[in-house]
Write a protein that binds this DNA or RNA. Structure first.
Lengths: 214, 214
DNA sequence: CTTTTAACACCTAGGTGTAAAATT
DNA sequence: AATTTTACACCTAGGTGTTAAAAG
């Protein structure tokens, strides 16, 4: 079981050295060590147990345009729409491994290319020359089956591959407007297959090098 | 106009250092400075003019598995089935640029990763640490429309994307057997779209590091 | 009972040779 | 007349939510 992340993480980056080469990568880290279950009648996620994430090193997905000059990175919206998530802990395809029914948050890493290290095939983050950004509003809960019908509706309306399930006469989902507002994304609805949306929109730092949305 | 190369170049490699990292790349170089035309009644290509290739540096297609350890490269057949050819000299997608109605030969380069150079985005070959191999039997003539019906038949029978044109009752093409014989490939039938097959099968050196076929 | 898996119809995305049209 | 371009039907390859079955 492996699915793309949708909606995908998209960022803009500022303040890079135009001629310096950078790798840009994404990983996904646990928000806490809790397991969750969705309570339908109250439409929210409740703590349902504990998990130990401490011995797991998250996998890194390197943006396929890497390496690339700062100038080029800053000129475009950087989209991670090919990232794949899996719940298979034995995965050998390099996909990002997550546990279902847990909360996660994506992180974006800007890595200056440094001739001292071989960054051609990064498996783990270098000790220096890395700037990491994450955004509260991209937090999400993983599931293998949708718990929240609004999320299902958003996916069907927004994901081109789900076009076959669209109802032409239906109104847009209640969360759809959030996808249009700049710069904030909706509470991200991601997972192997889909997932709940219990997170709250957050605020960014005053002058980040990376900003979400676009 | 851009098409994949078909049949694709496939090689096996021996004699690498198991733990050393290598890039493997392909490019396509002119066989001569002649322009050709196909004479139908004699079923062969004839010289039809001259061309100056001397100021053109061929583009390099880096195998998507690069960089990779010698051990891993030697364990698999290395296939360049995603290489794309174009006749558009203004191409900005990095595809290999060729002129129609000319003879070409693919070259395979094995490039040892060297921390002294930044090989992460190779645009041209390094001065040292490169071994280059080419095979007489992979020579081909570029066209924009098929000149030889046997080539058309081979493509339809062998290329999965041309399945819609297959005639289930028809015998296999006369060139098909060559695709099955090891280690030699048929006179390669490539081009933007397809092309003639006037080349002769050749012999390999006694103990090459790379061998064609598979 | 909750959660996961697998087969499925329905899509997007893109690689074929064909044949007619356009170009040279 | 020779060569190239374009629109096309037909295919491969793979990303959707759905649903029923399986697993826990």
């Amino acid at each position: 079981a492996r699915r793309r992340m949708f909606p995908s993480v998209r960022v803009k980056v500022k303040g890079l050295e135009p001629l310096q080469q950078y790798y840009i990568a994404i990983d996904v880290v646990p928000v806490d060590s809790k397991r969750y279950r969705y309570v339908y009648h109250s439409s929210q996620w409740m703590v349902a147990g504990n998990t130990d994430h401490s011995c797991i090193t998250p996998r890194l997905y390197i943006h396929p345009d890497s390496p690339c000059s700062g100038e080029t990175w800053m000129r475009q919206i950087i989209s991670f729409d090919r990232v794949k998530l899996t719940n298979n802990e034995m995965d050998d395809k390099g996909h990002i491994i997550l546990q279902s029914m847990h909360k996660y948050k994506p992180r974006v890493h800007v890595i200056a290319q440094d001739s001292r290290f071989d960054l051609a095939q990064i498996q783990s983050l270098p000790a220096e020359g890395v700037q990491t950004f994450s955004f509260q509003e991209t937090e999400f809960t993983t599931v293998t089956a949708y718990q929240n019908q609004q999320i299902t509706k958003l996916k069907i309306d927004r994901n081109p591959f789900a076009k076959g399930f669209r109802d032409p006469g239906r109104n847009r989902g209640v969360l759809d407007g959030l996808l249009d507002s700049y710069p904030w994304r909706p509470p991200l609805a991601l997972d192997f297959k889909a997932f709940g949306a219990d997170s709250q929109g957050g605020s960014s730092s005053s002058s980040p090098v990376a900003s979400s949305g676009g």
